[in-house]
Simulated scan of single mutants.
Amino acid sequence: MTDARQAPEAPDQVVADAAIGNWVDRYAPPAARPWLRLSRADRPVGTWLLLLPCWWAVFLSAASGDGLGWKGAWIILGCAIGAFLMRGAGCTWNDITDRDIDGDVARTASRPIPSGQVTLRGAVIWMCVQALLALGILLTFNWVAIGLGVASLALVCVYPFAKRFTWWPQIFLGLAFNWGALLVWAAHDGALGWPAGLLYLGGIAWTLFYDTIYAHQDREDDALIGVKSTARLFGENSPVWLGGFLALTMGLMTAAVDLAFDTGSSGRALALAGVAGMGLHMVWQLRSLDIHDGERCLKLFRSNRDAGLIVVLGFALATLI
């Protein structure tokens, strides 16, 4: 039996860091699998990490304002579809720019472009299709949100190159992945506000936390090919830095809630409970971390979906109040 974590020679090969038995490998038509893998549909945690700051923003804006309404309900659904599409387009762009690097890294050599499952031309077309579909959703929002959505493309374009010129590529990922907090707040509220900005900054600190954990899987390969990351920068001191990012995440998100609600509001208490729950989850991750165990790092990275959903739950309950 072929090990699902090794790249077989068959054209329909699985991707090394995808979960064994994921829905793409099991249920998707064979012809569609390379394209879905290029979009990371077989590794959905990235879609969640892009989506969660959007949901934080819509629920916190609704809880501190006039509620969700039909507009809020559409924003929630539209963001879910848009996050899937834009994460797919962004990952396709990332693999296009990294096509010469990915073949030299054990974990990424089985991806569709370096393994030959998808051509460069096909990847470019697929990226454009996904981006245009996402644009259709964006155009249903107000003009402030549309402008913010277009502006985010600059961050998406730059991110894949960041690891070539800075030790802090995770900051660029955070800037791009949490942009939805600003966009969605504007889509729901009609304008930006301080809580949105603090949610955005808190999300960036959270990204530094989880993506540094993720980057420890590739630390040795990255050193060989000259790719930079916070995992390589921090080395054995990573737990100390991660503790700092944890504290910064909690401080900024707590401040966002404080600004969004009046003191003594029951909605505020529920929202803060969600933030606190996320903080406890991150503490558990830090206590469980072994930076020399790649499987453990991947498991903890994936668990951040649950950490972010705890905040969504707290903010959603605050909306009901």
Rank of each mutant, 00 (worst) to 15 (best):
G294K: 14
C54A: 13
G251P: 11
L183R: 12
G235P: 04
A83K: 08
V150L: 09
A10I: 06
V184G: 14
A32I: 04
F245N: 11
R26Q: 11
L138M: 00
D221N: 15
A318E: 04
G244Y: 15
V105S: 13
G147N: 05
A106W: 09
T47K: 08
F161V: 10
T212I: 11
G235K: 10
L270N: 08
G65Y: 03
W206R: 12
H188F: 03
A154Y: 04
A18L: 00
S39L: 03
G180A: 05
L153K: 10
A276I: 01
W179T: 11
I113A: 07
R99Y: 12
A19M: 00
I213Q: 06
R43Q: 09
C297A: 15
E236A: 14
P30V: 11
Q217Y: 05
W74G: 02
K71A: 08
L199W: 09
W23S: 06
R43K: 12
F141S: 09
L77C: 09
L49R: 11
T263E: 15
D306T: 06
A176R: 02
A231Q: 12
V150N: 10
S61W: 01
L135F: 00
A151L: 06
S61T: 09
G90H: 05
A191F: 14
Y200Q: 02
S265C: 08
W56L: 05
L153D: 02
W70K: 06
D258E: 13
Y27L: 08
G122R: 01
A41M: 10
G67D: 07
L138F: 00
I204D: 04
R40P: 07
G235T: 12
A28G: 13
I204E: 02
L208C: 15
L68T: 03
L317M: 05
L182T: 13
C128Y: 02
F141Y: 07
A134D: 01
A276M: 03
P169G: 13
L50K: 14
R302D: 01
A4P: 11
G116Q: 01
S39Y: 03
R99T: 12
L36G: 02
G274Q: 07
G136V: 05
D12V: 02
V227G: 04
L120E: 09
G122L: 01
W284T: 10
H188K: 15
I96N: 05
